[in-house]
Amino acid sequence: MTELITLLELFWSFVKIGFTSFGGLSMIPLISSEMISHGFMTASEVADIVAIAEMTPGPLGLNCATFAGMRAGGILGAIVANLGALSPTLTVAFIAAIFFEHAKNNKHLVQIMTGVRPACVGMVAGVILEMSRENYVDVPTLAIGIVDLILLLYVKMSIPKVLLLSAILGIIFFAVMGF
């Protein structure tokens, strides 16, 4: 019975986190307060999970859900927490998808998207600069970034290959050569 209550609490915590966040690092304060108040994680574990989530594939919110869920209720807990974090996707995004597919050729929606598309380009450009500021902290990381850019734009190498190559370069530069 207590396990069921824990699972429900987990689910509800991540429903709240899901619906009140818009991705990325903006989720951290909310995740932190929810996790600590329910005793799912300690403050230092929250800091660790942020670092882990950034190093592993997958979005921060879902990675936190898996980590907290595992801690509080094993694999079942991880699944329940993920479903909670995905609840806006399975409801709001679903409704948006229906709406968008039906109204795709609506005159006003076409007009709206004419402004939203460049806005999105501006936003993504901002994201790229933000990440560059954080990730290019020394010469080797900058060198990896430049090599990757050339491989992507001119050699047309596929993304998974570029990421793998970067991991290998990272090991060579930092672990083997000791930069």
């Binding site: 990440m131 990757d148 570029v162 290998i168």
Partner: peptide, 16 residues
Amino acid sequence: SAMKGVRAAVAPVILS
């Protein structure tokens, strides 16, 4: 070290 390398690849990937 591997992850530091991967993080350096993210900005070029998005830029492309």
